[in-house]
Write a protein that binds this DNA or RNA. Structure first.
Lengths: 178, 178
DNA sequence: CAGGGCGCGGCATAAAATGCTGTGCAATCA
DNA sequence: TGATTGCACAGCATTTTATGCCGCGCCCTG
């Protein structure tokens, strides 16, 4: 999980490209980053093995599959001992409808993201959680009316510029990056 | 955006498989869903064209690329006329570091997800937003300490069972689904 | 029961993935 | 400063995959 220092500019371009075009052909990827297919594939495989790429996926338009309701839920635990957090986490991990779990600092403990078929479905899950031994003191739900955008591409180009600023002197052809 | 009624069980299996293995080979995909490669590819292409699949991407381990700080921000607008929402949305859409935007019902208006290099970086962006004409009355930030899990696979298998319940009578070989 | 349409599997061709080899550049050391 | 070593690249050959075409069987309809 250490920040790996072994990535050069080409590696970052590969990651950025794959992030937004996961099913791109290696030939096209090689062309996009300015390499021939062979070393490009070698690098991509190395990035996968080294854990920089954790997987690939298709983005689905869930609303075409049926009614979907996204809900964010703030959760406060009753107790805050070491085991209380891990117990809560391992329990909710098993619930398919909870697709994100974040431990936050602030007015509550966890922020959860639910993907459900509707409020009834959500209510069923919540009731199961309250009856189960999750250690929940209270919760608050925010129903998503609409999601104007969800970007699947994280801004790693901002890492470029950050790193670039650090080693500005030794590296002068930044401009080709983007 | 209408829920499309033209999907059979095989289509759903293709979607589910691609969702969790976006770079799978068509040959493997065909084998996984029980088709030969030709019709499998035809279906996959059709699902893409019909908009059920909106894209493909690689999932990156951002923490190996450098320090990243995720922050959820609750935003309340000063005014709530029709144009105020769209103006806010179009402005924040241009900020790379805001990767999700949700309009919610409840105590505030928007829930935003930031991916930043740190609190300083976040503060810069927030200050830019407050100085710009975004129409923000107030905001509250929740710094993510850790994210125990983020699932990239949405529970479309729950759609299976939902749909299955609806048309239980006319469709008896549900068991092969999973 | 006959006709028509749709979707399947199989086959052939084009494209891509993948492994191997030789070469050039750069850093290292004498 | 010049020789050596190592690394990463491009090019090529082979295997695998993608993709379009064709004929067959099933189901729906008349």
């Amino acid at each position: 999980m250490m920040p790996g220092p072994k990535l050069d500019r080409i590696d970052l371009k590969i990651l950025a490209k794959l992030q937004q075009s996961g099913r791109i052909t290696n030939v096209e990827l090689a062309d996009a980053v300015g390499l021939s297919p062979s070393p490009c594939l070698t690098r991509a495989k190395r990035l996968e093995k080294a854990g920089y790429i954790t997987g690939y996926g298709a983005y689905l338009n869930l609303h075409k599959l049926g009614e979907f309701l996204t809900i964010f839920t703030e959760v406060t635990l009753t107790e805050h001992r070491i085991g209380d957090f891990s117990r809560f986490e391992s329990k909710i991990r098993k619930l398919d409808e909870i697709v994100e779990c974040h431990l936050v600092s602030g007015g509550y403990d966890y922020l959860l993201k639910f993907m459900t078929r509707g409020v009834g479905h959500y209510q069923e899950i919540i009731e199961g959680m309250l009856e189960g031994d999750y250690g929940i003191e209270k919760y608050f739900s925010y129903v998503v009316i609409k999601s104007p955008f969800i970007k699947h591409h994280y801004p790693i180009q901002n890492l470029f510029s950050a790193k670039a600023a650090e080693r500005e002197a030794s590296d002068r052809d930044i401009s080709e990056l983007e």
